[in-house]
Design a protein around this nucleic acid. Structure first.
Lengths: 222, 222
DNA sequence: TGAATAGTGTCTTTCAGACAATATGCC
DNA sequence: GGCATATTGTCTGAAAGACACTATTCA
């Protein structure tokens, strides 16, 4: 970045989109909003906000979360920046996409006139999406599937205490495949990122040991 | 992204910075430019350009490569988007960083008045850098070191034909550690991404088999 | 005591890593 | 023949994957 005269250039607009994932009814779901304005009015889209000049990217992502979905995130990470020319029919818009994981799968009240409706969609049953949002969602799912293999970010999809069966179920839902119970437990416990809480879960049958993450912050494993 | 009135928002400026890596004198090096304008006039920086409204991010990255360093890239990938508030003392600037790999380590003529000088620096002997570019360079090096472990992008640092010793040397330079010759060859050949060219390299002693990549395009291994 | 879930161990295969001797071409 | 580089295989330990039975609690 060298040029010193800013006025020589017309700037593209910058937005920050947030892909919020959660688990509901044993499905990996994403928060989407139904647009209240043109373009794509009435269509479903990933929630997003315009970046303000006095606001960091991450702050904008958190604002988008709160303003549009009411969700407080547990895990937030920058995904990718999408800047194709024809993404937005109105003008040139570059969007910095973030993805977030949360255990809060309650739908908030709509707090913004730009949004007609908010809903959770299973990622396998997505509606038609505005802009290039289908591509962005798929990119995020791929990232999530990769990243739970070598980090501990799955904590963002679990309440503080959980059984190993709960944990395995989350992995199976995200990866969309079944895992062997013994191998899963062997591997997870060998990572040394969990600690038993020594309480038992109440339930209809044999209670399971409860665990929690030693640290609920991102760790790269191995 | 919902708001439909663009004029409600003042846009941050958007730049695209390009981190071009190559190997010279058995060192991993990066192209840097000495700035011709304030701020940071006379300091070294990563080459970059303002994103034009009618230009895709990748096109801007390629333009930056050519305008500032004359390099034609072999491999180009988006790195990360940096948007801290205080990155640029003049105004709010969001930069989308790309990193590129090339075998061309010739210094081009300076073709742009915003650049006083162009030079290659070994990544272990970096000068003081303008803006937050030190952080960005480190981020790119980390990405490169990770990514040559599970992709074939090292092809961007090698001429079309090379010996296994050449290839091993590149890995050792990038990773900054020595590798066992037998294990390296075993692993690389088992990946099935190389093919022998059946010529021999001229040299002072026993000639080595020449290889080339079956495909010189990004592949994720395993 | 039956139903449902929790919890556990062995064997095999694969991959990474340590390690050194022989082969070839050129001078 | 001497030198410099190329090329090759075995052993060991660790991790991943296939696979099935026992233990515990509650109704």
């Amino acid at each position: 970045m060298q040029q010193s005269n800013f006025d020589d250039y017309e700037s593209p607009a910058v937005t920050v989109d947030v892909l919020v994932f959660t688990i509901k009814d044993n499905k990996l779901c994403i928060f989407l909003v139904k647009r209240g304005f043109e373009p794509y009015k009435g269509e479903w889209a990933v929630p997003g906000v315009f970046l303000k000049v006095g606001e960091s990217l991450e702050a904008a992502a958190k604002r988008g979360l709160t303003e549009k979905t009411g969700v407080k995130d547990l895990y937030l990470e920058q995904l990718y920046t999408f800047g194709d020319l024809d993404r937005d029919p109105r003008a040139r818009v570059v969007t910095v996409a973030y993805f977030a994981l949360t255990t809060n799968n309650q739908l908030p009240e709509i707090r913004n006139e730009s949004v007609q409706e908010i809903a959770l969609f299973p990622v396998n049953e997505l509606p038609q999406l505005a802009f290039d949002h289908k591509k962005i969602v798929q990119y995020a799912i791929d990232r999530l599937r990769n990243k739970i293999e070598y980090t501990n970010i799955v904590y963002g999809l679990l309440s503080e205490q959980f059984t190993l069966t709960d944990l395995q179920r989350v992995y199976e839902i995200v990866l969309n495949k079944q895992l062997d119970k013994r191998n899963f437990r062997k591997r997870i416990l060998s990572l040394d990122i969990l600690e038993p809480v020594d309480k038992k879960a109440g339930g209809a049958h044999r209670p399971a040991m409860l665990y929690q993450f030693k640290k609920r912050e991102p760790i790269i494993l191995d």
